[in-house]
């Protein structure tokens, strides 16, 4: 081997040594990365397990809260005792709802209200329990009252307990209240941002109610008015929260709106009350399509 060959061999040896070291380093790099990624994966699995447990606890808790809420609010079976031909389409956005139905019997009359508390989910549900409690207090404290009186008194309580006690809260309730005198076939209605619809032999009548918000200190004037309606057998009465009419959907992704709801109610008016409920549900699902439900939904229909 001459000198040139020896130099060449040394160079190749050096090159080989460098490549070996590079290969070993590359192997170490992958080993270290694999160990790290395994740890990240284990951490993610542990986090996922923890999240699943938290989610299960929360879901169980909210489902149980729904049972409690149902005790305080009127459910379909209870409504049917007074109005056998009635339905409640109740579809909360998140299990518990800010929408509710309240009722009481007093002096031979039935008082019925449908409320829509701001928000949905747990805050809406907590507010609904508060409003139901206030309605119970109002009905128990007054011997003779009307829907407008109930709303006026509720307004003062909302102002006192929610607005005056906390600057952080800006919540309220939209409510429709009716008083039904079965003996005299008379119905009184008052509403704060919630209407009443009556359909009699295909003729639709829309009672808008007041536009004022409960508890709003700016509205100092008397804002609830009683509307007197004489009802007759076969009349249809509907009360509803704004969830159904505010739902986005359809081919142009627009709100369902009260206009379409009135058309729907007119079209299904001749059907049995059970069929009407199914048709309203189907119309809502069809309109919503793949969109998310934006709010709690509550629709109550009664055939006198």
């Amino acid at each position: 081997m001459d000198e040139n060959e020896t130099t060449q061999l040394e160079k190749l040896k050096k090159e080989l040594s460098y490549l070996k070291e590079q290969y070993t380093s590359l192997e170490s790099m992958f080993q270290m990365t694999t160990v790290h990624l395994k740890k990240v994966q284990d951490d993610l699995y542990a986090s996922k397990k923890e999240l699943v447990e938290i989610n299960t606890d929360l879901t169980d808790s909210i489902n149980y809260a729904k049972l409690i809420q149902n005790v305080f609010t009127v459910q379909e079976q209870e409504l049917k005792k007074t109005f056998p031909n009635s339905f409640i389409f109740d579809s909360p956005k998140y299990v518990v709802s800010g929408d509710f139905i309240w009722s009481c019997d007093k002096n031979g009359k039935t008082y019925l209200a449908i409320g829509d508390c701001t928000g949905h989910g747990v805050p809406g549900a907590m507010l609904s329990i508060f409003i139901v409690n206030m309605l119970d207090q109002i009905s128990n404290s007054t011997s003779n009252t009307s829907p407008a009186d109930i709303i006026e008194k509720l307004d003062k309580r909302v102002q006192k307990y929610l607005y005056e006690n906390s600057s952080k809260l800006n919540d309220s309730v939209e409510i429709a209240v009716l008083e039904y005198d079965a003996k005299n076939q008379k119905l009184l209605f008052a509403g704060a941002k919630r209407p009443l619809i009556r359909i009699r032999e295909g003729d639709v009548k829309f009672f808008k109610g007041s536009n004022n918000i409960l508890g709003n200190s700016i509205s100092k004037f008397s804002f609830a008015e009683n509307n007197e309606l004489y009802v007759q057998k076969g009349d249809l009465i509907y009360l509803f929260s704004d969830g159904i009419v505010d739902q986005f959907g359809g081919s142009k992704n627009k709100k369902f709106l009260t206009k379409r709801f009135l058309v729907l109610l007119t079209e299904i008016a001749s059907l049995t009350i059970a069929c009407q409920e199914e048709k309203i549900k189907a119309a809502f699902i069809d309109w919503k399509g793949d969109n998310d439900q934006i709010d709690d939904i509550l629709v109550m229909g009664i055939r006198i």
């Binding site: 790099m29 992958f30 270290m32 990365t33 160990v35 790290h36 990624l37 740890k39």
Partner: peptide
């Protein structure tokens, strides 16, 4: 990507 992940793994180590 393998180099970037190795950097992350190395920093963590």
């Amino acid at each position: 990507l393998s180099f970037k992940m190795a950097v992350e793994a190395g920093r963590f180590k």
